[in-house]
Design a binder for these strands. Structure first.
Lengths: 223, 223
DNA sequence: AAATTGCTTAACAATCTCTTAACATTCAGT
DNA sequence: ACTGAATGTTAAGAGATTGTTAAGCAATTT
């Protein structure tokens, strides 16, 4: 089952930015625009991680954090604060109230993602890297793919494509989704572009790993 | 037993910031707000590392450092200075009086953590990763890199760049991260600046050590 | 003041990556 | 089997990224 993340922030822009990037990374994301709403969703979906803006109208992040922690069921739910850069560090440091990490605003997607990944990994929610099976190992940190102990260099698009497919073995990704995730939401490329990359991937890692579902899309399989 | 660190700084904000981050990283931390208090705690807990502000009312960091070093029991205790960014490098370099490293203020947690980790690792307190292999040795104290027994002088930027890449062999550092860490968060330089430094590094240490991952970044490898 | 060192820039070259287009092949449904 | 739509294959060239070089500037040293 997918790892789920709840984003609570009053600014819509932030919610969308984070949501977009987290989903792209493969997480399941829900958002709330205030503390009350956030707590409701929390009870419903029991997320693995809550990303929480400190400064919000109504309940502020600290109150929400305390509310979360006061529920025994969520004592262990990970919480990551978003803080204004110029806020007093002493305040933040005092937030040992229950936050597991904090990220300063303005949030840069890359930074947030690496923190989120690190946090989940540390807590054992995430396993090291995306490892699909014993034969194909995708290591994003080193940007290499290992097959039977042999390192294979893949150009960026091929790497991202493989990473996407392998992130959910047996799941069929349709072309539209692949374009969105690997190329970007509003990039327009020709019809054969994906095929060409699939072909190169198959050439490099072996065609047995990627199966075509005609009329639907592609999926990664472990033979 | 946990690795312990003593932070001596007159500013409460700094103490809390560092304390928060070091604890999060798994260290055991004590703080002192002046030199005298610091020396007392030093005698009590015998920390593995002392982080020491240079500019403090009363005893300044240099005096504290000398006091620490004058005690035979702490001749080998690691000391890391916090220095104002605009202080003269030559002065700092001259502080061989006993410091093992220094970090410029304003302190950014990430930078400090990576320095602290590197320092402890280098001194064998931490075993985590290797900073270098047998062929390339990076000596931050002397600001010198040794390759096959030969000392190579590297200018500051090149040194920091190599130190960063080599701090995590095989890890791909993207350009943005490199800029943040080596140049500073909000320094703006042209597109080709990193490349030029990479080129000079390759020229000096051999191009086999630094690999380009096109569209992603660079990584240090041990051939 | 002249020379040196370190850093950055800019222009251009080299290289790697991606996309396209043309054509071939496969597959599902008749 | 046939047929149209979808996918596979290939090579070329367009596009993007990085490499290289030399020159200029600022700071430091002689």
């Amino acid at each position: 089952m997918a790892i789920s993340i709840l984003v609570i922030d009053d600014e819509e822009d932030i919610r969308e930015l984070l949501s977009y990037n987290l989903i792209k990374e493969g997480y399941s994301v829900e958002t709330a625009e205030n503390g009350e709403q956030g707590l409701e969703i929390l009870k419903r979906i029991h997320p693995d991680l809550v990303i929480l803006d400190v400064m919000m109208p109504g309940m502020d992040g600290i109150e929400v954090c305390e509310a979360i922690r006061s529920d025994p069921e969520h004592r262990k739910t990970l919480i990551c604060f978003l803080t204004a850069r110029n806020e007093d560090y002493s305040q933040i440091a005092g937030l040992d109230a229950g936050a597991d990490d904090y990220v300063a605003k303005p949030v840069r997607p890359k930074v947030l993602l690496s923190r989120v990944n690190a946090l989940l990994r540390r807590k054992g929610v995430l396993h090291d890297n995306k490892v699909s099976d014993d034969q194909i190992i995708i290591n994003r940190e080193k940007y290499v793919v290992t097959k039977d102990g042999e390192e294979i260099h893949l150009p960026r698009k091929e790497f991202e494509l493989l990473a996407l497919l392998a992130s959910r073995p047996d799941h069929v990704f349709d072309r539209e989704t692949i374009l969105d995730q690997v190329w970007g939401a509003d990039i327009v490329v020709g019809d054969r572009t994906i095929d060409v990359h699939i072909r190169k991937l198959r050439e490099k890692i072996g065609s047995e790993y990627i199966k075509t579902i005609k009329g639907v899309g592609y999926k990664f399989i472990m033979p």
